[in-house]
């Protein structure tokens, strides 16, 4: 095989990174199950768990477009399984949040290495993804919901839990990265 063909066939992510992203993705799917315990458990835990997973994924893999890739895959799978309140279209909220988080994480060099930027990014992830979710529910499906409820129930709690998760993810991510590299 010529060098050019090999270049063409080479993926942006290595096989190892792809499988690692898949592992993080599976964790995200699993953490989505906290909603089955009800809103009282789902609201605080979902943001924390997603914050941990997303920031840890960005740190452990450490390559640009990691979060965007996770966002695209999550949206694709969510799109075909319609497991959220609001069906398939609401899956777009993860993609919208991932685009913003990816843009913020890329500001740090190396990728996702600065705690402050990670916290801003995950805060914006929470804000954008929840705002997009609410927008789809309201403007596409026609749900009538007052602003105080939309902000107080659907958006505001996530603006607190996602940064907490992001902080924990930063700590866990660096620890895990060292362990994984050492194994």
């Amino acid at each position: 095989m010529s060098d050019e063909t090999i270049k063409k066939t080479r993926f942006y992510f290595t096989n190892r990174e792809i499988v690692m992203i898949a592992a993080f993705f599976a964790l995200m799917i699993m953490s989505g199950f906290v909603w089955f315990a009800g809103s009282a458990v789902g609201i605080p835990l979902h943001g924390i768990l997603w914050g941990i997973i997303l920031i840890a994924a960005a740190i452990v893999i450490g390559k640009k477009y990691t979060i965007l890739t996770i966002g695209v895959i999550y949206t694709l799978i969510d799109f075909s399984s319609a497991n959220m309140y609001g069906g398939t279209l609401t899956a777009l909220n993860t993609l919208a949040g991932a685009v913003v988080l990816e843009a913020i994480l890329q500001m740090a060099s190396p990728y996702a290495s600065k705690l402050k930027l990670n916290l801003i990014g995950i805060f914006l992830f929470g804000l954008v993804s929840r705002a997009v979710y609410i927008s789809i529910i309201v403007f596409v499906y026609g749900m009538t919901i007052p602003l105080w409820l939309a902000v107080g129930y659907y958006i505001l709690p996530h603006l607190i839990t996602f940064p907490i998760g992001g902080y924990l993810g930063f700590k866990i991510g660096n620890k895990v990265k060292n362990v994984v590299e050492a194994v």
């Binding site: 066939t9 096989n15 898949a22 592992a23 599976a26 799917i29 699993m30 890739t69 695209v72 895959i73």
Partner: peptide, 17 residues
């Protein structure tokens, strides 16, 4: 192809996780 692998692996990893 890498994206297809990623989706395949993701589906595989869910029960494992």
């Amino acid at each position: 192809e890498w994206m297809i692998l990623l989706i395949t692996m993701s589906i595989r990893f869910i029960p494992l996780t």
